[in-house]
């Protein structure tokens, strides 16, 4: 990373990178406790939490509106979307807590999501009559760029990755 800033013509990079390396040094001194404390919602985890939060809000709010305005049209689909929304909320909260409890909660939520998206995704393709309107997990989350299928896999991978290091 430090070598990458070298070609810049401005005079600032040298002074700018200095505090960064100091920071890295202090981080290393405080390891491993410090690295574990920064944990789940740090680095790529920060992006993961952001996307999870978007899904938590989107799925929950959308299902709530659908249940308020037209519940009878596709009750199963809307209830499943609401359930998915709650699972996303739990996963988001779990990922922002780096404690052992938070990890466990996030892990269970991701596992439930993966099971849900695979089951509902398959069912929605096998029997289209089952879900007259789309649920979040229909067709493996096709309506949401397949992110509902990708998120739990990324989540579980991230949990494993951070547990090892």
């Amino acid at each position: 990373m430090a070598t990458e800033t070298a070609p810049t013509t401005e005079a600032t990079p040298a002074t700018e990178t200095a505090p960064a390396t100091d920071q890295a040094a202090t981080d290393r001194d405080q390891a491993p406790a410090a690295t574990r404390a920064r944990g789940l919602a740090s680095g790529p985890g920060r992006l993961l939490v952001a996307v999870y939060a978007v899904f938590a809000l989107a799925a929950t709010a959308r299902a709530a509106v659908q249940m308020i305005t037209k519940f009878d049209e596709a009750p199963v689909a809307y209830l499943l979307s609401a359930f998915a929304g709650v699972v996303y909320i739990v996963a988001t909260v779990g990922l922002t807590r780096s404690s052992a409890g938070g990890r466990r909660v996030a892990g269970v939520a991701c596992a439930v999501e993966l099971t849900g998206v695979l089951t509902v995704g398959t069912l929605s393709l096998v029997d289209r009559g089952l879900f007259p309107d789309e649920a979040v997990w229909s067709a493996y989350g096709q309506g949401y760029f397949f992110l509902p299928a990708a998120l739990p896999i990324l989540g579980l991978w991230w949990l494993r990755h951070t547990a090892r290091s």
Partner: peptide, 9 residues
């Protein structure tokens, strides 16, 4: 946070 992923957020 100052990181690649945080920026991408």
């Amino acid at each position: 946070e100052r990181s690649r992923s945080a920026t991408a957020v």
